[in-house]
Design a protein around this nucleic acid. Structure first.
Lengths: 110, 110
DNA sequence: CTATTCTACAACCAAATGGTTGTAGATCAG
DNA sequence: CTGATCTACAACCATTTGGTTGTAGAATAG
């Protein structure tokens, strides 16, 4: 199938991770460079624990990993997670274009 | 900015809409062809009202529209919604590549 | 007209989300 | 060693989510 694994719970976590402005911002930050959890927490008007949870959501969605360095935990982006989301959307795009082509064919014949 | 409107609540609704297997399936179906709400409801092992709610979530996310035809409500995909999601992911991709290039440059110089 | 179909929406419920505070363990600085 | 910093995690709370059932209105079929 073009859009495969539509029922994959990994996709649930992936898109849910994107469905929050703070997490989208965190993702943009750690995509551009390195941040510790506390470094990220300093950026937002919410508790450290709240940011910690957001990072955990991104981690469970396979969008970031954490790596211990001294007493800090460095958050790094996992590019494959992003690519998986892109592939799904591209799948819909493909279906849509196929239908557009089919309709064009019908119009051309009729 | 490359990834703009990171705080857009429309994006919250958009990605949350994707974060459910039933909604992803509905989206694939209505992307490939026309379905009424009851036509969709017949496909899933849940109540009509539950499917109705899923369609409503997709509608609020600007991913589908409903059009009344007789006593049926025809669900149609809105391609722009999908494109908006794709653009956001492409924005992350761009940031990621910029950093990858920057690192490559540093390695080349060093 | 009557019965059926399709839809809309309210009320309810359990579970998950997104936030908080508090406690405790590691690691580093002095 | 002591104090500060960074992290982890539990407990709690309000709101949202994803499902249910039930009621009611519009449109179609016979």
């Amino acid at each position: 199938m073009v859009v495969d694994q539509l029922s994959d719970p990994e996709l649930d976590r992936l898109f849910r991770a994107f469905a929050d402005a703070t997490r989208r911002d965190i993702l943009a930050r750690v995509t551009a460079g390195e941040f510790s959890v506390s470094g990220l927490a300093a950026l937002y008007a919410m508790s450290f624990a709240a940011v910690q949870k957001h990072v955990a959501v991104l981690e469970r969605a396979s969008l970031v990993t954490k790596e211990k360095r001294g007493r800090e935990q460095i958050v790094r982006v996992r590019h494959e997670g992003l690519q998986k989301a892109q592939r799904l959307l591209d799948g819909y795009e493909t279906i849509w274009r196929q239908r557009a082509d089919r309709i064009a064919d019908i119009l051309a014949e009729g």
